[in-house]
Structures are given as structure tokens and as C-alpha cells.
Amino acid sequence: MSTTIKVARPVDWTGIFFAVVLTLVIVVPLLVVGTWAFTNVWRFPSVIPQEFGLKFWYQTLARADVWSSITMSLTLATTVTLISAVICLPAAYAFARMDFPGRDILFFSFLAGHAFPKFGLLVAIAGIFLQLNLIGTFWGVVLIQLVGTLLFMIWIPVAAFQSVDRRMEEAARDVGASPFRVFWSITLPQAGPTIAAALLLSFVGTFYETEGAWLIGAPQVRTLPVLMISFINNQPVIQYGAVLSVLLWVPSFIALLFARRVVNSGSFAKGFGA
């Protein structure tokens, strides 16, 4: 015979309250948008749609501007991520392994782009770009979005590089690898998973970026989020916007799965000096 000892666990009302509020604020809108995307007819005051269906998926995906903006967004995000990697990864390695004058100030300067109201900054940059004939061009948008990726692409890889055992690199030098070869064959693969997450974050960040793309790119360069905003603003049919948002969830969902690894491993926190 066994006796069960009941341990009185106090009910965490505050926790439950926050959980409920967060669920309402985050999940309910997602559910509503998700439902709208697969709805053919949904009239007030019914709680569930009268008719489910893929009608608006066909209609949305039949539009040429949707496809051209999807292509534009993918090309843009890929270009920005690649250029950002080429610029930022060696820089991050330098931050992680070398000591040079102004290192700390330079390191924190990447916060500057995120420390001020973004739109004000963008308007100022747009003024400069206007002079340089970069407004409405693909490379103008690339340039503005590169700025947005710098923080992630420097800080996260710095943490990744710092966590690579220095002796592994020395062992590679010892068997005859040049410093560049060590970076390529040892450091980069060792830091791989974390850097992959940083790449993904910058890809997704660029993919969703709206203000810069709109202010610098409009009207010639139209990304998916920019198109979605114009749909929401100009079309009386809710479903167009809903279908586009569901489409836009895909990359962020994949990114979240990867980002979990980074956040859990603590290297993300380390990048921020924890």
C-alpha cells in the first residue's frame, strides 16, 4: 500500500493571467487571419464562415504582381543576405579574435541603426539616395536593407566565433593551415549552426522589411510585404491580404525553428554581452 502525499502547489494566478492575455493578443489574430485566407464567404454576424474554400488563393496567385513581388522579395532577401555575409562574417571574426583600437565603440555602433526611430533615419537616407539616383532602384533597396542586417550578422557570429576553441584553430595552424584556411576549414564549420541561424534571421528580416523597401523602392521595386500593404489599403476584399499574410508566414516559421537553437544554446545572449 502506498500513501500519496499531496503537495499543495499554489495556483499561479498572475502567470495564468499573462498566459491568457498573451494567447488572446497573439493567437486570436493569427487564427482570424488564417481563417480568412481559406474563406470564400464570411458575413456578419456569423462566428464561423459560411463557406470555406481556396477561391481567393487561386485569384491571388493568378495575379502577375503577386508573382513578380514574390520573385522580387526572394531575390532581394538572397542578395542582401549574401552581401551581408561577405561583409559581416570576416568583420565578426575580427571582433571575436582580434584587439584593435576602437573595437568596443565600433562593436556597439551597430546598435545605432536600431536605437533611433527608424522612419526618421530612413527619410534622411532617402534624401541622400535621391541625390545619388538610388531611389526606386533594386540596389538602393539592397543598400538600405543591408544596414538593417548588420546588427544580427555581426553580433551573433561574434558569439559563435568566440565559442570556437582557440586550440582547435592552433592545432590546424600546427598541421600547416594558413590563417585563412583555418577560418574556412575549422572556424566556420565549428560556428556553422549559429551562423546559419544568423543568416536565416537576416534573410527573414529582409524578407519582411517594409518601411525601407517602400520608402526607397516605391514604386518600381515592389516586395511582397509592400504589395500586401497596398492590398490592405486599397482592396475591399479582406481575403487578398489574408492569403498574402499566410504566404508570408512560411519563412518566419522556418526561421523560428532554427532560431530556437541559437536562443537555447545561449550564444545569442552571449552575443549581447551576457
Binding site: 576553441d165 586550440r167 582547435m168 592552433e170 592545432a171 590546424a172 595552424r173 600546427d174 598541421v175 600547416g176 593551415a177 594558413s178 575549422i186 564549420p189 565549428q190 556553422g192
Partner: peptide, 18 residues
């Protein structure tokens, strides 16, 4: 080090785990 005819075995063995 990459030019030297020396071979070093490190304390933490420093094998390349990948």
C-alpha cells in the same frame, strides 16, 4: 606555426569535432 617542422599535441586534444 604552419611553416614549422613541429607537431603539437594540445592539453584538451583540440580535435576537430566536425
Amino acid at each position: 606555426p604552419e611553416k614549422r617542422p613541429t607537431g603539437m599535441v594540445f592539453q584538451s586534444h583540440a580535435l576537430w569535432t566536425h
